[in-house]
């Protein structure tokens, strides 16, 4: 099966610092793939390089066969790729609803505002509040919801559970499973191994700027020793 998203021999730099050393990965349509790894191994840089935010990069990144490396950042979203950063990127000067309406709709099939409010009822109640007045969990939901409206078909999600209470993490798990049911392709970066094991179809382990292991969720139990050793979980 031809992968929807394919990354080949991706190298990336921050100034003089060489961060990614030949990353290879592929994601099929409708699949949820999780990148696991300790802090500083290059997980976030991988997502930011795929999106085009890190511009010092070499290698090949294709989405649906289209080469993303040649595109300016503002054209990447138009290929169907959406990015939810670790810091969430909620705008303080905009209300919740203005934050939701900010990204332009890039293709048919995105959620309407009503559908988003049904999926995230908290956002409806607080739609007139400044975006940064929301709790951490609500901000995370707003950051995800904002991309769902655009019609993006592939979601890059960077540590969505970081710093959140268990009950909010469960709610985000429900949302991710709902997205999978709708056919959304998701690349998830996580350190919360237990959360990832409930939502991902396949895993990559990242170490020192490279993908060192790849396995489906079914092999999880058999790989626990390696995970303990690599991730310290």
């Amino acid at each position: 099966m031809t992968p929807l998203l394919e990354v080949r021999d991706l190298n990336a730099w921050y100034g003089e610092s060489h961060v990614l050393h030949g990353v290879n990965m592929h994601v099929s349509k409708g699949e949820t793939v999780c990148i696991l790894g300790r802090n500083g191994m290059g997980k976030t840089t991988t997502l930011r390089s795929i999106m085009g935010i890190v511009r010092q990069r070499q290698g090949r990144i294709t989405l649906g066969g289209q080469d993303l490396t040649a595109l300016p950042l503002h054209r990447t979203a138009h290929t169907g790729l959406g990015f939810v950063p670790e810091e969430r990127g909620i705008f303080a000067t905009l209300s919740v609803e203005e934050n939701l309406l900010l990204p332009p709709v890039i293709s048919q099939g995105g959620m309407t505002l009503d559908e988003i409010y049904r999926l995230f009822p908290n956002l409806l109640e607080r739609r007139r509040s400044p975006g940064t007045k929301l709790s951490g969990g609500e901000q995370q939901m707003l950051a995800i919801a904002r991309i769902l409206r655009t019609g993006a078909t592939t979601l890059l999600l960077d540590e969505p559970t970081e710093g959140l209470a268990p009950v909010i993490i469960d709610a985000i798990g429900v949302v991710l499973r709902e997205l999978r049911a709708r056919g959304m392709t998701v690349v998830l970066v996580e350190q919360n191994f237990r959360f990832a094991s409930k939502v991902a179809d396949r895993f990559y382990i990242m170490d020192h700027g490279q993908m060192t292991h790849e396995f489906p969720v079914g092999e999880l139990a058999a790989r626990m020793d390696m995970l303990h050793e690599t991730l310290g979980v």
Partner: peptide, 10 residues
């Protein structure tokens, strides 16, 4: 506020 984020929206 965050030009890179806005660019990433397209």
């Amino acid at each position: 506020e965050n030009p890179v984020m806005v660019q990433s929206f397209g």
